[in-house]
Design a protein around this nucleic acid. Structure first.
Length: 682
RNA sequence: GCCGGGAUGGCGAAAUCGGUAGACGCGACGGACUCAAAAUCCGUUGUCCGCAAGGACGUGGGGGUUCGAGUCCCCCUCCCGGUACCA
């Protein structure tokens, strides 16, 4: 089973975007190719329908998010169907449906029981427009504005739910080495995790984290975050016991390391800047050797990664399945009581009080403690939409089961994902969260593998007029217009022909015209009376080239090879080969032509053309003749022609080839090149 | 600032292992068909010199390695994406 997966869309009110079509067309062609190659392909699609984005839009237009979601998912479904993707709709998911989020909650309960979900009071990012806390990752521009609405965010200290992803930081980091991901994705995620090996060193009761314990003798101050109680005092230097002044410095991040830094102006740029600004002395005391440094500190590993804040004081998400009991504290909702249904409320607007709109549903909130049966109150925060998407690939194969989140046998047979087509914007969050959740579930014995996505490829961005499509630029392309005018095969083809899938590229009406003509020409050629040709070697080479291009996700090259082949296609056999090669790119046209050829439905379940690989070896090759590094002509020889034969041919064909006595050097690469280096008069 | 990715004809791009740069498409030009146009088909199309044969130059700029560099190495410029004092 080949699990061909693409990141499921958030069903925006704007409908399907050409960027979606670009990404999905390639994924679909890839899946169709593998199916024809004999793999059983599982290619589902679904909707990431919960979340602030949907909810904010619902608030804007004054429509209930449930209603809005029903409408937008219906539209997406129609549009996706029209594009002709081979999606398995029988295995679809919608994260906002109780049948789905029941299991999202079930997973949170498992994590809670395992000590991986906890409540803590912490300074968190608050968006005054969305009226909710956000994960640090959901802010932009140095964490100053909300990524959803661009509003400057503030900080609040609140009691929130977290997932203990930092407990897996080491494994998430180490595991990257074994993944077949693009380097840039791996590097980017590794940097996000930010593993750092160093030392903890005590200055009295104040502990600092440093990667440079050897610079300890040159410490002239200690820096702590603004508002730290130690600021203004001194602490004894661990080597000399001399008092070291403690300063409050805005460059010290409270939540990283020990939240305190030893100031070494001689060896650290930031420390130097701070020292200069505050008139602090600079010491160039000689450095300590490793052994001496080890004697005063403890080795420690720190991460840039923080625990994952999943509380949202919003409506459109799964209620966090916890009940608060005065006697028992926070208690998980028993599995039998899941899902905790999102209550129907009239007013789903965020309250702005730091509590979710669910808090106003008093009847819903009031409940009994599952443990002691005493009076208790439900947790009113909902969970982050990234929780929903961190396990949806586990649900797809088992989506019809209502008594288990995933079936053991199905999971074993279909997962992990064989090919995951992702977006670059998801490397730090979605891909990381999904890895964490999968690892945790693995440790709980619930899934038989640690890594959900052993093979990821990142799709490029489709642009128009050299710029990312956006409403403000007015260069947004709607797929519907093109589909209505030219059909989805043309739109798919135009997008695939524009550029390699991983690179992304320019969408233009010119490309649409080119593909439209190509497909029209294809129709005429295939439906014309049979003739002779091309020769088997031509067909074999084209088949090989198209296959190779698809495997490399270079659909543009695949189409180019088909365009080259088309004019020579005459024989019935060649037509049958051509239509099958075309099928992943233009599924509708290929199906119709296959039918016209009198072949049984469906072209998409036919075997991919096979060829005798000996046909790929040509009987003769044209190789360049170089003289002093310049191409001076070519000779046609057998691919395995020997050195002497080629030299002879080159002398005959190219007059400027030096005679033997004037040849200083001769480089011969069989089947590739013959290169003469001449010698001046002795 | 740091980390990625990129820069190839008029345009989108190809070149998979260091071996004929520009496949394929668009556009343009010329021709066929047509009363005419559209559509379609055929041909030409990197730049420069040349009647031609042929030659010179050419993959953002500069240097290098090599018989041979779009491809490898060093330095630089610009564009796109990510990231932000992580000790």
């Amino acid at each position: 089973m080949f699990f061909n997966l693409v990141e499921f869309p958030y069903p925006s009110a704007e409908g399907l975007h050409v960027g979606h079509v670009f990404k999905y067309s390639g994924v679909d062609a890839y899946g169709r190719y593998h199916r024809m190659r004999g793999r059983q392909v599982f290619q589902p699609i679904g909707f990431d329908a919960f979340g602030i984005h949907t909810e904010n839009y619902a608030l804007k237009v004054g429509e209930h998010p449930a209603q809005l979601t029903a409408r937008t998912t219906r539209r997406f479904r129609e549009q996706l169907s029209r594009m002709g993707g081979a999606w398995d709709w029988s295995r679809s998911v919608d994260t906002s449906r109780p049948e789905y989020y029941r299991w999202t909650q079930w997973i949170l309960v498992r994590l809670f029981e395992a000590g991986l979900m906890y409540q803590a009071e912490a300074p968190v990012v608050w968006c005054p427009a969305c009226l909710t806390v956000l994960a640090r990752e959901q802010t932009e521009r140095d964490g100053t504005v909300c990524e959803r609405c661009d509003t400057p965010v503030t900080e609040r200290v609140m009691t929130q739910w977290f997932l203990r992803i930092t407990a897996y930081a080491d494994r998430l980091d180490a595991g990257l080495d074994r993944l077949d991901w693009p380097d840039r994705a791996r590097r980017s995620q590794r940097r996000w995790i930010g593993r750092s090996e160093g030392w903890e060193i005590d200055f009295g009761d104040l502990t600092v984290f440093t990667t440079r314990p050897d610079t300890l003798p040159a410490v002239t101050f200690i820096a702590v975050p603004d508002g730290h109680p130690a600021a203004g005092g001194t602490r004894p230097h661990p080597l000399t016991a001399a008092p070291v002044p403690v300063f409050a410095a805005d460059y010290v991040v409270e939540s990283y390391g020990t939240g305190a830094v030893m100031g070494v102006p001689a060896h650290d740029e930031r420390d130097a800047r701070f020292a200069a600004e505050h008139g602090i002395a600079v010491s160039h005391a000689p450095l300590l050797d490793a052994a001496a440094a080890a004697a005063v500190g403890r080795p420690a590993v720190r991460y840039r990664l923080r625990d994952w804040l999943i509380s949202r004081q919003r409506y459109w998400g799964p209620p966090i399945p916890i009940v608060h009991c005065a006697g028992c504290g926070p208690v998980a909702v028993p599995d039998a009581d899941l899902p905790v249904l999102l209550p129907q409320v009239e007013d789903f607007r965020p309250a702005g009080t730091g509590q979710s709109p669910l808090a106003a549903a008093e009847e819903w909130v009031r409940t009994t403690c599952p443990r002691c049966a005493g009076p208790a109150r439900r947790e009113t925060d909902v969970s982050d939409a990234f929780v929903d998407s961190s396990w949806y690939f586990l649900r797809y194969p088992s989506s019809e089961f209502d008594d288990r989140p995933w079936d053991r046998e199905r999971t074993r047979r279909i997962l992990p994902v064989d090919f995951y087509a992702g977006g670059g914007e998801h490397v730090q969050r979605h891909h990381l969260y999904a890895r964490f959740v999968t690892m945790a579930l693995h440790d709980l014995g619930l899934v038989p593998f640690e890594e959900p996505f052993p093979h990821i490829r990142i799709g490029g961005l489709i642009v128009r007029d050299g710029a990312k499509m956006s409403k403000s630029r007015g260069n947004v392309v709607t797929p519907d217009d093109y589909v209505a005018r030219s059909g989805s095969d043309v739109l798919r083809g135009a997008l695939m022909f524009a550029a390699p899938w991983e690179q992304g590229g320019e969408f233009s009406d010119d490309a649409v015209a080119g593909i439209e003509r190509f497909l029209a020409r294809t129709w005429r050629v295939i439906t014309a009376a049979d003739g002779a040709g091309p020769d088997p070697a031509t067909l074999a080479r084209a088949t090989h080239a198209v296959s190779d291009a698809i495997e490399r996700l270079s659909f543009n090259v695949g189409l180019a090879r088909l365009m080259e082949l088309l004019p020579s296609v005459r024989s019935a056999e060649a037509k049958r080969v051509f239509v099958r090669l075309l099928a992943p790119f233009a599924p509708h046209l290929a199906e119709e032509l296959w039918h016209r050829l009198g072949e049984p439905f469906s072209v998409h379940t036919q075997a991919w053309p096979v060829f005798d690989s000996s046909l790929l070896l040509s009987r003769e090759v044209e190789i360049p003749v170089q003289v002093d590094g310049r191409v001076r002509g070519t000779v046609v020889v057998a691919p395995d022609a020997g050195r002497d034969e080629v030299v002879l041919a080159a002398r005959r064909a190219v007059t400027t080839v030096p005679p033997e006595e004037r040849t200083a050097r001769l480089v011969f690469v069989p089947g590739r090149v013959i290169s003469f280096v001449s010698r001046g008069d002795p």
